[in-house]
Design a protein around this nucleic acid. Structure first.
Length: 353
DNA sequence: AAGGTGACCAACCGCGCAACC
DNA sequence: TGGTTGCGCGGTTGGTCACCT
């Protein structure tokens, strides 16, 4: 084998050379454990021979690091661990080893498996894209508000860091709904097209909607005060909300409601380098909801999430908002939203007026 | 009871990278 | 400096089990 290596360069670790593959037997485990306890693993390539195992070094290393290591924590993942994984994954992506380094006793392989079999599905059910950790942008999202509710209320908040991250996630979910509707209005009210999008008009009623209608709609359908304490209440089913949206009357004496004030949390010049999100308080032209922010490194993003100040200030900035800002900036063109509306116009929602 | 199906997870595979010679 | 080696990583596979029809 080593002669082969010298002559031909690197050889496959587990080539078809008579070495055993597949599940480990208790005897093999025992041999590996005893050898490592006595001598350490040293060179993994040399270990199997020294330990009397008919395995390749790589197989031994994997068996040790993923299963036999004494500090391995077996058993179900706690809710706290789940949240940590989700949060870290949103920052680190599929860097399983990096994620594992933050979860003592858990291996990258275990976390990877757990992610693929549980957490990915869970996030999808919540309407969150498990790759981007952004709310999914299709309008089916609105038809899945019960799941969004579950997302907003998910978890028993034990860890303050987790608490903060979850709260931000809830805010982001709520903001996403507002942003979605806001952009829909922008498209519907746009005058760039010589002919209005008739399908979209049919979807939302006859007259272009105005923003105060949107706010009234939001006031009727949600309790945004909840944003201050992380509780999100969106009590109506998606089709009912849409129905309410269609049935809105235009109050002639419309005044800015507490909602718009609640949402008008803006930092005029971003002196602190923080984000802000601003619900417009005037009729068109409609300003952007999400202001751009200085780019943050992954490390900074992590620090932001860990920063205890965030925990006492749920309206403070977050990478979630940044993500939404990017999303909306990237995809906020009229054509993008028109596409969504076109999709929605063929959706199975019951549109009653 | 038997076959089908999906979930779960241990293990394998191939690649990239850093250390070494 | 280029080739070799060892290791670690992320993606994938395949075996097992539980549940369903």
């Amino acid at each position: 084998m080593y002669f082969y290596a010298e002559m031909m360069g690197r050889i496959p670790c587990c080539d078809d050379n008579g070495l055993k593959k597949g599940p480990w037997t208790p005897e093999e485990d025992q041999k590996l454990i005893e050898h490592i306890q006595k001598h350490g693993h040293g060179s993994w390539r040399a270990l199997p021979k020294a330990a009397g195992l008919n395995r390749c070094g790589k197989s031994c290393r994997l068996r040790w690091t993923n299963y036999l290591r004494p500090d391995i924590k077996r058993g179900k993942f706690s809710e706290e661990e789940e949240q940590i994984i989700i949060n870290l994954h949103s920052v680190l992506g599929n860097k399983w080893s990096a994620i594992a380094s933050n979860l003592p006793g858990r291996t990258d392989n275990e976390i990877k498996n757990f992610w693929n079999t549980h957490l990915k599905k869970k996030l999808l059910q919540m309407g969150i894209d498990p790759v981007t950790h952004r709310p999914r942008t299709d309008l089916n999202l609105l038809a899945n508000l019960p799941q969004l509710l579950a997302a907003a209320n998910y978890g028993n908040l034990m860890n303050p860091w987790v608490d903060s991250a979850l709260r931000l996630q809830s805010d982001a979910t709520q903001l996403a709904k507002v942003q979605l509707l806001h952009n829909l209005l922008q498209v519907l009210n746009t005058s760039t097209s010589p002919t209005p999008n008739m399908e979209a008009m049919n979807l939302f009623g006859t007259a272009p909607l105005r923003e105060h209608q949107l706010y009234e709609f939001l006031r009727l359908n949600s309790q945004f005060e909840g944003l201050a304490n992380g509780q999100v209440n969106f009590p109506l089913e998606g089709n009912q909300i849409l129905s309410n949206l269609l049935n809105l009357e235009v109050p002639s004496d419309y005044q800015h409601t507490a909602i718009s004030k609640e949402f008008t949390r803006h930092n005029d010049n971003n002196q602190l380098g923080t984000n802000s999100y601003v619900i417009p308080t005037a009729n068109p032209p409609i300003p952007p909801l999400v202001s751009a922010s200085p780019e943050c490194s992954a490390v900074n993003q992590m620090e932001n999430k860990i920063n205890p100040n965030d925990m006492s200030n749920p309206s403070s900035t977050s990478t979630t908002f940044e993500a939404w800002g990017e999303l909306m900036d990237d995809e906020g063109s009229d054509s993008y939203w028109k596409d969504i509306i076109n999709q929605a116009s063929s959706s199975p929602w019951p549109v009653t007026s």
